[in-house]
Simulated scan of single mutants.
Amino acid sequence: MARNYGGKIRAVVFDWAGTIVDHGSRAPMGVFVEVFRRFGVEISVAEARAPMGLPKWQHIQAVGRQPAVGARWQAAHGRDFADGDVDQIYEVFTPLNAQVVPQFADIIPGALEIVAALRARGLKIGSTTGYNRPIMEVLAPIAARAGYAPDNLVCAGDLAEGRPGPLMMYRCFTDLGIWPPASVIKVDDTVPGIDEGLNAGTWTVGLSVSGNGFGLSADETAALPPAEFAERRTAAERELTRAGAHYVIDSVADLLPVLEAIEGRLARGEQP
């Protein structure tokens, strides 16, 4: 094993929603609110967003385990929220999310250009997602028609464990034929996605403005007053920095200078 890798970056592994598609990671939000409502419990968009990045089963579990949501569940059902409830909600969630995801399949500005620039440098393009495979069977072909087709796809549920563990990243290493982890950058807009990269030993880049922490479409973002934009951006940056991201940028459009900075650090003997 390369104990002190000093070469070039060989692959970038991107998340999907909030990173390459769906500016603001908006597709799942209304679905989470709706499925809990169908089970007699009202939740807010903020409560739905809190665990974003986890595999969707674990995401539903984490929403229900929030104290305020758990209290509402107890009031509605006369018992604590349990894993059997997660199973039932998940069965409703998947087809609903697959139904709405085409409405939120917009490619984030600059993403296609960055991927093309990375490929021109000889890099492989990997991908992991908190979406399960039935949802990605809807989203991936839409993205491909728009020009985005990564070299692999690892979905929540493909392996024994998803985020924040490293197994999906390990699958990327195998699929892409890339090692060591220090030659890989993981790009994600959520804390579990950053954890996924850190736990796998890669460099990590968080996305503040295009992602879940900001939570708005590209048009909504552009229409914000400067003070509100700055406030939202700072909050999203703070969350990703606290998670341990090596770098935090607005969106994938800003990735190339970070790639060059990381390669400089590798040349100086630094590791993730």
Rank of each mutant, 00 (worst) to 15 (best):
66 Q>L: 09
68 A>F: 11
203 W>R: 01
56 K>L: 04
88 Q>N: 08
261 A>M: 06
44 S>T: 15
152 N>T: 12
209 V>M: 02
122 G>S: 04
236 A>L: 07
169 M>A: 12
154 V>N: 02
228 E>I: 03
252 V>L: 02
129 T>Y: 13
110 G>V: 06
34 E>H: 07
217 S>Y: 12
131 Y>S: 06
85 D>M: 05
75 A>R: 09
215 G>M: 04
27 A>H: 05
93 F>I: 11
84 G>R: 09
51 P>I: 03
133 R>C: 05
196 E>N: 09
127 S>K: 06
239 E>V: 14
149 A>F: 01
66 Q>H: 05
105 A>D: 11
163 R>W: 08
243 A>T: 09
191 V>H: 00
57 W>S: 10
91 E>R: 15
151 D>C: 02
42 E>W: 08
11 A>P: 02
127 S>V: 08
152 N>G: 09
248 V>F: 01
16 W>E: 09
27 A>M: 09
57 W>F: 08
54 L>V: 13
74 Q>P: 00
130 G>Y: 02
64 G>Q: 00
104 F>E: 06
154 V>W: 01
227 A>C: 13
168 M>S: 08
195 D>M: 14
118 L>V: 11
97 N>Y: 15
189 D>N: 01
168 M>P: 11
234 T>C: 10
25 S>N: 13
77 H>S: 10
37 R>L: 08
266 L>P: 01
272 P>T: 15
103 Q>C: 15
206 G>A: 13
46 A>S: 14
27 A>W: 11
57 W>R: 10
47 E>P: 06
199 N>K: 15
264 G>E: 04
194 I>F: 00
163 R>G: 07
86 V>L: 00
197 G>R: 08
239 E>L: 10
217 S>L: 14
213 G>P: 06
29 M>Q: 08
120 A>C: 12
26 R>C: 12
153 L>W: 08
162 G>P: 05
256 L>G: 02
110 G>M: 03
101 V>L: 07
